[in-house]
Nucleic acid binder design. Structure first.
Lengths: 344, 344
DNA sequence: CTGAAAGCGCTAACAG
DNA sequence: CTGTTAGCGCTTTCAG
């Protein structure tokens, strides 16, 4: 076996045409006579030739690689989104260079440099905080950026999220309708727009009914912290214990449920109603059967890809904008269902 | 803002040296006087220069990209492994081009072509069936391959797995020691070596005690199929119902537990003991608290990276071999614990 | 439509 | 150690 790379020149020789003819045949916006095309294709197949993407990238400036930065895959929402995103981009002829990174500050700057080194055609930041410096660097390099599941107030970066505010508000309305008296909230990382928007919507919903939050803890989207937060909130005398809990995402809601049920032996939804946010597959499993707000991952991904390609192929007018996908409340069994409640 | 790429030539001019001097400074096996290095580095920093990885790849033949093919991310074991793998490779200066693909036959062939197009330095196949054709194509292209969590009997491809046979056997011993009478098994996809090895070890364990399997169904590592399999197995008169169940992986074990507990109202481990395989994070959560065999993802990843780099940097003798990582039984609460049982 | 020629940005001999 | 000189495999003018 050869181990030698077959080049367009090899094909050209076999087909009896020039090397540039071969190039044209394999270039989308080509122009070649049917005769040439046929001969080249035949020779190419015979040799098993495939254009060298790297060489093409270097000269055309388009690598057809999209950089993807994800902070952590523990929360089931991200693997799921990653899977969809990868498939959608592959569909469009792009490939995904993946970077998993902690939120650590220096780290992410390095990551951006490394992506730029590969001349990625675009970058998706999934739920990672972005310094304005990063945005600037990407812009300088002419690389489109879109944020997935987090938005920045700062203008100029496209972002795709759910309607987090509306989702949070809907949870408040649902809990209120269920006649809950002591409504509590476990927050995610307060630097995250998702967290802020969900909480703001939730509080707005309470406020419209002239009600205030009964208790609040911060779980930081982290497993251990959410566990501690739940214990702090519920391991108290009964009269100070919440009867309803909204958790900023499903991942934390699960551990909250575990603590409430298995460590404190309280019944859900009998003594405590729990509502989450995301609707990851696990939420539907019978052990949790979690009432939650659904993030439509598929739509979010579609919008992300659209926003990205729009910028990449932009003749000029790529309007960077924030897109929010509708997020419906999915009623299951972890929270008391108000009498006569019907899903919309 | 410029938008123009800074090249080594720009740096050379500013530093007052030749272009190749710049190249040398940025090439690991370089040789340049301290003076040159300093001047180049300074000029580079001033311009914000970074070598173009693609150009480097094309001429050096090394892209420092590793292709990763994963079948599905639903099973928590894979996101977890992916995260570790990505980090480990980044540590070594490699980057991961990720391909998520169904097992569909044509698909994976295309994927390999696409990776080869990018001149990946190596490929990791995580739990995907490999045709011998694929192996050959990679070998032809001189691209090292290692399989993660699946091995092929065919020689010539390195593979990293757990000690699946021993793990399965340990489960049998544990269940036997727990005095279970009707021991059942839910299998994964029968084309997978992991499935075969786990089952073979399990059966061997039973056989050594002169016992046979009481019932067997196939779950194919699939959520819905595992659900159906569990129902078929347990929704029967009590005298035909197993009192112990080994499931080929945690992912299926969870749904089995849900069906047993919440649909059939049987108690675990009171009426049925359940044991899984993988020890994904969810297994430790209180709702499941699953006794299972641990796959040491960290070690598996380390071995994978080692095997890969060994082949990539191979002077010549890269012995392709199968590596099996020890897989200990983790005793939790989903299966009756034999009296006097102590973890080793 | 086609071939010749000029690069893309970089590494790797090769003489000094 | 350094600069000069060839390329790597491909796209893209530019004349025909």
């Amino acid at each position: 076996m050869t181990e030698t790379r077959i080049t367009s020149l090899d094909v050209a020789r076999l087909a009896g045409v020039s090397q540039s003819a071969v190039s044209r045949v394999f270039t989308p916006g080509a122009s070649a006579s049917k005769k040439t095309v046929d001969r080249v294709r035949k020779a190419a197949k015979e040799l098993g030739y495939r254009p060298n993407v790297l060489a093409r990238a270097i000269v055309s400036g388009k690598s057809r690689i999209i950089g993807l930065v994800v902070a952590y895959l523990e929360n089931q929402f991200y693997p799921q989104a990653l899977e969809k995103l990868s498939n959608a981009l592959q569909q469009e002829g792009y490939h995904v260079l993946i970077f998993l990174t902690s939120q650590k500050h220096g780290k992410i700057d390095d990551v951006v440099d490394e992506m730029l080194d590969y001349q990625v055609d675009g970058i998706v930041f999934a739920s990672v905080a972005m310094s304005s410096d990063i945005a600037r660097r990407c812009q300088n390099a002419g690389v489109p950026v879109v944020q997935f599941n987090r938005r920045e107030d700062r203008k100029g970066i496209a972002a795709v999220t759910s309607e987090n505010f509306a989702g949070g508000k809907a949870v408040a309305e649902f809990l209120l309708a269920g006649d809950h008296r002591r409504i509590a909230y476990i927050a995610g990382w307060e630097g995250a727009s998702t967290q802020r928007d969900r909480e703001a919507g939730f509080l707005e919903g309470l406020k419209l009914a002239n009600r205030a939050l009964f208790a609040r803890e911060v779980g930081n989207f982290d497993f251990e912290q959410a566990k501690a937060a739940t214990r702090a909130m519920f391991d108290v005398p009964e009269d100070r214990r919440p009867d309803a809990l909204f958790v900023a995402n499903d991942h934390m809601a699960f551990i909250a449920m575990d603590v409430i049920r298995h460590q404190l032996s309280l019944s859900i939804p009998g003594e405590v109603s729990v509502v989450g946010f995301d609707d990851v597959p696990l939420a539907a499993w019978l052990s949790y059967n979690l009432t939650t707000v659904r993030q439509r991952a598929k739509q979010m991904v579609e919008e992300t890809v659209r926003a990205l390609l729009e910028q990449i192929e932009a003749i000029d007018t790529a309007i960077t904008r924030n897109i929010a996908v509708e997020a419906p409340l999915i009623v299951r069994g972890s929270a008391r269902i108000p009498e006569g409640w019907t899903d919309k």
